[in-house]
Design a protein around this nucleic acid. Structure first.
Lengths: 334, 334
DNA sequence: CGGTTACATGAAACCGGTTTCAGCGAGATG
DNA sequence: CATCTCGCTGAAACCGGTTTCATGTAACCG
């Protein structure tokens, strides 16, 4: 592997000049620059990133923390893959790479921060897993740029990206109302999760805005998993006055609810209309098709990348980014 | 941030001794070692990985290439997420980190190799996307340890991990035969993909082993996506003598086939039995439950990590690893 | 024509580790 | 007692970049 000094020798210049060609091209004479660039291409010179990082203290790497414990189900963010794509693409367009941070190896609360320091990471993105994670705290409290997904975190240089959960939930209820439904129930996510809480708030707000009565028995808490949607729906069907529509705060729960409705001998959407949230792949595949509020999956990654790069390069902490949702109408609401 | 020399000064030793404590603890006197370790903990000393990498030419990082073009559908390996979990976990247990390699940024065929060189990556894992990718070639041809998933690659230090596609397909056919089926069709994957070709081979081998007639019209090629399974099944149902069982080389295609059967007014498993391959999440969710050959998802990641680390540390190139599949019987075969 | 300025470049220190090689003291050996 | 060995340690070079500061040259100014 050619080094910068070797390239410099070949070109009859000093290594300082070569370095400038790659970092500050405009300050070096055009002829010299061309000579250096062409020679570099000829001998296959590649700057050594470790040496750069050592000298500049900038690694051009962003860490990704996506869970601290893969044995729990929480790691399964519905759009992990899409987020990752968006993140990776947006980062690499700006010359950054993504380093997967290992699970907090030794369990000490500052293990993430230590990993960041050791590798000179320029910033960090973490994907919420639904649990407050103590080992994120020291990191968030540090001066390291942090972007969190779906959950605000406290810290001097932190921001977050999330969907418009309230607005989406309101649109869901509005849509059900527009199709003539009046007894609209909801199956919520866990109250401790932010999306869970916000979607419930949207549901309540829109009920009020539409002048619909809020019947507490029509609100059942689930855990975002299919089985909880199934159970919740069965409970709703056993009410004296069952609902004619259900807004489930997640598609998996909506699909569980769908199954419960079908098994009870009722029809979707004729007897009960259903709206989900997320727009997972399955939503389009399950008959009769699930109406849902699509989240901007790739947008999560892109927005996170943009935010972290802004913090790194411009030193400013951008405001939280709220991504709009989009109503996708399918068979489950007729 | 404390440096090694500062720590050395505090302990009244040289930086060489401190370095030894972290890399070769047994050669340094026990008392000195304890003093250094406790002082290090006290002042929060962390070795700088860039400096280490620069000096040792080993980064303790493995690159992950999982597609070269995210706009194509090929990036969606069915188990990407699980593979990633296994990979990350196994790597971090041995002190390695995972660097997501950007899509071949500039499109030149050696861009991956260049990225590896720049970052001193110790090895690379790539996830097959179903297409032969020219930009992997220079990398595979280099001396860099490479592990590929689901597809063999040519190179001096390469190996791969894959499922026992032939064995799994044979078990699928054997299982259908055991439930009394005799006219067993198959919906294959694209012949150019290795899993596609191998599962077809297993199907044919087992037919022969069971003494069943091979009827060419019972073999229909799909592309692993749901719609192709649907189309293939419709074609099969229009045959003069339709099959009484179908082995689909992928679960998504099997689910497409399931839909076609249902729409035709036939019943699964009474009229047609179905077996898939993969054991995707949906397989358990779609009524009546899809019998399938489960791949060892986390095992892919673990095996890939083990292989790449073996190459890095021991300098040997392990033989390809063939992971066993497991028959999961659900409602679609009664 | 002397002095200022802009431009282009090089020498050398520096980033924070690792590693080679030599040296030292203590105990073992002849 | 001289020598050898062993265990432990330090000085210094090195990894491959970046950056500061000084310098030389040419153009410009009054």
């Amino acid at each position: 592997m050619a080094t910068i000094r070797e390239l410099a020798r070949l070109c009859g210049v000093s290594s300082a000049t070569v370095s400038r060609v790659f970092n500050n091209p405009e300050v070096v004479n055009a002829q010299t620059r061309e000579l250096i660039l062409s020679t570099a291409a000829r001998i296959g010179y590649l700057p050594n990133e470790s040496a750069r990082t050592l000298a500049t203290k900038r690694s051009h790497m962003v860490g990704l923390i996506w869970d601290t414990d893969h044995r729990r189900p929480g790691w399964r963010h519905p759009f992990f893959q899409e987020i990752l794509i968006g993140l990776k693409t947006a980062l690499s367009e700006r010359g950054y790479h993504l380093l997967m941070l290992a699970t907090s190896e030794d369990g000490t609360p500052d293990s993430f921060l230590r990993a960041v320091r050791r590798h000179n990471l320029d910033g960090v993105v973490f994907i919420d897993n639904g649990r407050a994670d103590p080992s994120l705290q020291p990191l968030a409290a540090s001066e390291v740029p942090c972007v969190s997904l779906d959950r605000p975190v406290q810290g001097p240089r932190t921001t977050y990206v999330t969907s418009d959960n309230v607005g989406g939930a309101r649109e869901a209820v509005r849509h059900l109302h527009a199709t003539g439904r009046r007894a609209i129930a909801t199956i919520t996510g866990p109250a401790r999760t932010r999306p869970g809480a916000e979607r419930l708030r949207g549901y309540l707000e829109e009920l009020a805005a539409l002048g619909l009565e809020h019947r507490p028995e029509l609100v059942v808490e689930g855990d975002f998993y299919l089985s909880s949607g199934y159970a919740a729906m069965r409970a709703l069907l056993e009410l004296e006055e069952p609902p004619d529509a259900v807004f489930a705060a997640g598609d998996e729960m909506a699909i569980g609810a769908l199954r419960a409705v079908t098994e009870a001998g009722l029809k979707v959407p004729e007897d009960i209309a259903l709206v989900g949230f997320d727009d997972i792949e399955l939503a389009a595949l399950v008959p009769p098709g699930l109406t849902t509020l699509a989240q901007d999956k790739a947008g999560f990654g892109t927005a996170a990348a943009a935010a972290v790069i802004k913090m790194i390069n411009e030193g400013v902490t951008p405001l939280p980014r709220i991504l709009p949702t989009r109503l996708v109408v399918r068979g489950s609401t007729g």
